[in-house]
Amino acid sequence: MSLLEARDVTKRFSGITALDDVSLTVEDGEAVGLIGPNGAGKTTFFNCLLGLLKPEAGEVLFDGKDITRYPVYRRARLGFARTFQRIELFTGMTVRDHLLVAERARLGTGRFWKDVLNLSKPTVDENERTDRTLTLLGLEDVAESPVEALSLGRARLVEVGRALMTEPKLLLLDEPSSGLDAHETESLAETLRAVQAERGTAVLLVEHDVEFVRSFSTRLSVLDFGHLIAAGPTADVLADDAVRRAYLGERV
């Protein structure tokens, strides 16, 4: 049984078929890439997986459970976590608070009556876990500063950290390299590899940067105009003629 299984997902926007019978699986602990030119339907597919969009047909299974109708936050509690193409952080909150909120949301330990009795200060245990994630991502020096002060590259790491604090089984990365320069992209990839090695989290990566994908994922799917045109081991797919035509723009 796969960790994530999308079966024949179809999504239409008033006549335009953005996704046409797209299927994809991610196994436990595996890193899978999803590429495609602009407008191929990558983000639409992503949003269908996350529950931000409701697909017209097809189903999404997670750990064998049909979650097609689940609201976003319930999927998160099952073990979905994500980062955003355009940074979505909580303005006004510090980096540490971002991680703490995610930790509380995962465990559901934030109870209103605890707030009322002023019992919701971070526990030793919670502090330890946030510290560990901060160290893993190299964010210790900015732990107490508000997120507005961070560069784009580090802000994205905060997103990764927030996602990791929910202890996901599957991490969905939506174009993590967008807006980063070559150096930042390289160090992000390195950090992500370290995270994957340490936690064994499965990753689904939607990405433009072919080098990033090549270095990171073992399997690869390619979308073009809402159709899945190739899927398989990364090296094979990148060598495929149809993929080269559609995506890499090469004449073969």
Binding site: V72, Y73, A76, A81, L89, F90, V101, A102
Partner: peptide, 14 residues
């Protein structure tokens, strides 16, 4: 605070 900052992101962590 999280919901005011970004409702989508807040939902994405549960």
């Amino acid at each position: 605070d999280a919901l005011r900052g970004s409702e989508t992101a807040a939902q994405s962590i549960g």
